[in-house]
Structure formats: structure tokens, C-alpha cells
């Protein structure tokens, strides 16, 4: 459980707060989307979840423990953060060692490390590259490697910063499957993204941030209904929501994915005949 209470944050010697009066609770088994314009404070917020940044005022607690009281490593074991740019983390000589790095830092036993690394590489379809330099992988593979290197230590919370950037449609679909699978294991996945279509397919609890303030926090269907808030955050609606608004009241709710949209359309067409 992550608890954020009246969080204010500003960088040292800066004048303005980047985050203002943020309060929220995120439990286990949730999918949470965080959206907002550039510079709205999304990344600053998620960096508080594993203690990389400490609140200027207020507090952040992870499983009841204040992030100011323990090291980043302590919280990272529970909250895995996957950053946007794989280039900012890849350094090992082989793909295998890249995944094993964090596990060694956390002090897992050799046997467990081997088991977890093998599992993660197989799961992300990277096992055939295990002895290769990670720098030689393609952009998409590097991104998967970063995800594998975090999932390998089995954190309870997984935070993904812009996971869809530079990924093709198939990879996005796979990512959605992975996220849904993680949730069935009672993990929480927090996704920071600009990609509304991707967010819609996840059907998450959606948090909108603008200028360091949470302007909306709720079920993504209700959030995407609120035109004024969406405009404030510079977010467009997902195509499936627009389709629903065009056809309302012919269909009763926005379809959650293409498959459902298709069956709704077919039903509608049959009705028209």
C-alpha cells in the first residue's frame, strides 16, 4: 500500500512547488494510470514512491513505512520503477548480468538469482540473447530488457514511465497482457503515459495531474467524460470513447477494446437491418 498525504515538493533552492497538496492511496491489485501534460509533475510524483525524492512537506508511506526513514534500496525492493529511457540504465557486459544486477544489489542468493533471471528472460523472449551485449539489442528489446530487469526481483508495485514510447502495436498488446497478468497476481501496476489509446485499453483508475495538482482521480470511464478537466490537462479522448459519444444512445457504453467495439457495431448493424 502506498499512502501519500498532503505532499508538497520543491527542488532545493527553487521558488515554486512542483507538487502541491497531493493526497492519494494506492492499494494492491490495482492498475493506475497517471496522465498530464509535459512538466505537470508526473515523473516527480512517481519518484516519491520509492524514496528517490523525499517530500518537502507531508509524507509518503510504503507499507506503513515513511520514505524518509529508510534507504531508496529498501523501498525499491517493494516498488520497482522502470524508467523511460533504457539508455539510462543499461551498462552490463551481457543481457544476463543486466537482469542479475538488481538481484545482486538486493542480496538474493545465487540460486534464486539464476532462477529469477532465467524466468524473466524467457518471459520477455530475450533468453536467446543472454550472452550478448545489451547495447546491441534493438530499441524495443532494450525496453523489454529494462522491464525484465525490474520484474525479476518480484516487486509488489511496478511503475512504468512511458512504457509505450518507441514500441510497435504488437509490443503494446503484449505489454497490456503482462500488466493484466501482474494484476491477477495481486501486484499493482502504475503507468505514466501520454498514450490515451493504450491507457484506455488498460481500463485503469486514472489520475490526472496539472501543474503539480491532482485534478481528477477516478475510474477511467468517468474521467474521460469530463471534458473541461481533459482540456485543462491537454488530453484528447480515446477513439473508442469518441465513437461512443457519436453513437450515443445507440450504444449504451464505450467499448473497452476493438473486439468489443466490433461486436457492438455488428449488433447495431443487425438491428438496423
Amino acid at each position: 500500500m502506498i499512502e501519500v498525504e498532503s505532499l508538497y515538493f520543491k527542488y532545493p533552492l527553487a521558488n515554486d512547488y512542483v507538487l502541491k497538496n497531493i493526497s492519494l492511496k494506492i492499494g494492491l491489485g490495482e492498475v493506475v494510470g497517471i496522465m498530464g501534460g509535459n512538466g505537470s509533475g508526473k515523473t516527480t510524483l512517481i519518484k516519491h514512491f520509492n524514496g528517490l525524492l523525499k517530500p518537502t512537506k507531508g509524507f509518503v508511506k510504503v507499507f506503513g513505512k515513511d520514505t524518509r526513514k529508510e534507504s531508496v534500496a529498501y523501498f525499491s525492493k517493494k516498488v520497482g520503477l522502470v524508467f523511460q529511457n533504457p539508455g539510462h540504465q543499461i551498462f552490463s557486459d551481457t543481457v544476463w548480468n543486466e537482469v542479475a544486477f538488481a538481484l545482486k544489489n538486493f542480496g538474493f542468493e545465487e540460486e534464486i538469482i539464476n532462477k529469477r533471471v532465467k524466468w524473466a528472460l524467457e518471459f520477455f523472449n530475450l533468453i536467446q540473447y543472454k550472452d550478448m551485449s545489451p547495447l546491441l539489442l534493438s530499441g524495443g528489446e532494450k525496453k523489454r530488457l529494462c522491464l525484465a530487469s525490474v520484474l525479476a526481483w518480484n516487486p509488489d508495485f511496478i511503475i512504468l514511465d512511458e512504457p509505450t514510447v518507441g514500441q510497435d502495436f504488437l509490443q503494446k498488446e503484449k505489454l497490456i497482457e503482462i500488466i493484466k497478468m501482474l494484476v491477477t497476481q495481486n501486484k499493482t501496476v502504475i503507468v505514466v503515459s501520454h498514450d490515451v489509446e493504450f491507457i484506455w485499453l488498460l481500463q485503469p483508475r486514472l489520475i490526472l495531474i496539472s501543474n503539480g495538482i491532482i485534478v481528477k482521480d477516478g475510474d477511467c470511464r468517468s474521467v474521460f467524460k469530463d471534458d473541461s478537466v481533459l482540456e485543462k490537462c491537454g488530453i484528447t479522448k480515446p477513439q473508442l470513447v469518441e465513437l461512443y459519444e457519436e453513437l450515443y444512445p445507440l450504444i449504451e457504453r464505450p467499448p473497452v477494446d476493438i473486439v468489443e467495439a466490433r461486436s457492438m457495431m455488428l449488433k447495431l448493424l443487425r438491428g438496423l437491418k
Binding site: 528517490l52 524508467f83 540504465q89 538488481a102 544489489n105 530487469s149 526481483w153
Partner: peptide
Amino acid sequence: IDSQRSRGLE
């Protein structure tokens, strides 16, 4: 540094 600290590097 942020990215490596998130992977347990102290």
C-alpha cells in the same frame, strides 16, 4: 543515478 538507485545500487 536515479535509475540505478531504483535497482538497489547504493
